[in-house]
Design a protein around this nucleic acid. Structure first.
Lengths: 160, 160
DNA sequence: TATACAATAGTACAAAGATACAATTGGAGG
DNA sequence: CCTCCAATTGTATCTTTGTACTATTGTATA
């Protein structure tokens, strides 16, 4: 019986915001192994109903946890405990050099009928100015509150 | 054996919708000639099962591809690569694909810890002369029009 | 009191899933 | 052959789920 709601206790009188209480407690549950990789968390509405709070508050907590790479929220599907890339994936990525990646890109572009200069231009065109600096992905990094919207953090861990 | 499912990689954590990832990847497979006219695609349920997603998500992608005249979906029969994509369709999709290819390349490079300028340099470095496989290939090479009839009479569900 | 701002709630929306349905095919039984 | 019917395949529609944006509330501070 993995009822997350039973493991979460909110103190409505604390000065600590509700969403922050949620973040800490879920974080704790994951780190202590009460929640494991791939486990599905309650939906934002489900948990919100159980805890008698607004689902946006849960969503906010989930978003922070997502940005901290502790969980993975997927619209229309649900929210899951973050899964580490498989050993093979990591190894594969490690072995691929940037040069190989570039060559492969050029090959694929050639397959579409584009010559190298055109492919080069395409890369240039698609490197936007506000490009995300890749933040460090440390596992045990503390979760920080961000008061302002941080719209970066698109996540691309080549799946599976 | 052409197992489409092996050529499709979904990233569940991407901010790009699953059905859109499907559309792009099928487009690319067609344009690079890995899928040819008359080839039957997996059924929506088959592909969905393989990819661990709902078959309606596959159906959504198929519908978009059908509207783009790239494939032909036929209720009760299956889904097939469209007989004869027009030149304009091919050209349009080629351009979209190149941009998408470039973005994906940048993403993958970022995943390895390289920023965009570094990725750009890598492309430049690898397109230097002495790389025989980058000779200019014509556009018509990617998709060849065959007038030969395929094994089934193609009836279209979505007009012509 | 007035102002500012963070926390929370409300509303609208997009992606993905569930379910029921319609068209096509193919085989069994006449 | 023909008819019937079950299985297969795509379609239509609604529900579920997370996201974005706005509004409200509460509290600290001038």
């Amino acid at each position: 019986m993995n009822h997350l709601k039973d493991k979460i206790k909110l103190d409505f009188r604390s000065d600590e915001p509700l969403y922050m209480q949620l973040v800490r407690q879920v974080e704790q549950l994951v780190l202590t192994g009460e929640l494991n990789q791939g486990d599905q968390l309650p939906t934002v509405r489900e948990l919100a109903t159980e805890l008698r709070i607004n689902f946006n508050t849960v969503a906010r907590a989930y978003r922070l946890l997502d940005e901290a790479r502790l969980i993975s929220t997927q619209r229309g599907r649900g929210t899951y405990i973050w899964e580490e890339p498989t050993r093979e994936t990591v190894e594969r990525l490690r072995q691929i050099s940037l040069a190989e990646l570039a060559r492969r890109y050029l090959d694929e572009a050639a397959g579409l009928g584009y010559d190298a200069p055109a492919a080069l231009d395409a890369v240039r065109d698609n490197m936007k100015p506000g490009n995300p600096e890749h933040e460090d992905v440390g596992a045990d990094q503390a979760i920080e509150v961000k008061n302002e919207q941080t719209q970066q953090t698109q996540r691309r861990t080549s799946g599976e």
